[in-house]
Amino acid sequence: MALVRSVNGALRRVPVGLVYAIGGVPVAWLMWALMTNGLGVDPAKTLEHQLGGLGLQFLLASLAVTPLRRITGVSLLRFRRALGLLAFFYVALHLMTWLLLDLQLRWGEIGADVTKRPYIILGMIGFVLLAPLAATSHDWALRRMGALAWHRLHRLVYVAGLAVVGHYVVQAKTLSLEVLAYSGCLIALLLARVAWALAKPPAPRP
């Protein structure tokens, strides 16, 4: 308990801006690698995969905040918005890379992919669901919408998580360790919430 208290005390002194700064480091690293030919012989594909992976990781991190608090007492709640926004940032860059560098704005093929390919459809669903969450992430939106409506809207993150991880799993050619790890994490994070919801009746909302 003392440990948890001191961890939380230390975390309170961490400025949220630091999370944004650290979360942006991979962009700088990718830019540097791009300019120094560090992304291999197929840099567009590497960039696309790295950005998508970062989006997935930040999304899972944001979904881990509540379970972490409930299980260990360590609260990263102050940083959850930053984690969510970073997830959207990387997902959006991943989508841009796909459109501009991979498909190279060949709209016929993009249209066919978006309507026919399950993994592309899942990815687009993930992006479309995350966009309103990013757009309403500000305190101002929370005040304007009211806490109840805002919380309801932001439960879309669970569906977005399923879509984004589904997008990753469905495009994989084999059941790799990464595929198992990402899908296992998401399932655990969602099941924890289901278990807590079933364990006790919903608390009265503020």
Binding site: D42, A44, L47, D102
Partner: peptide
């Protein structure tokens, strides 16, 4: 079944390797 085979990205040419 999962992706199109209509076009391909030719490796080489860096970030802007043409499709």
């Amino acid at each position: 079944p999962r992706w199109s085979q209509a076009s391909e990205r030719r490796i080489g040419g860096g970030l802007f390797a043409r499709r």
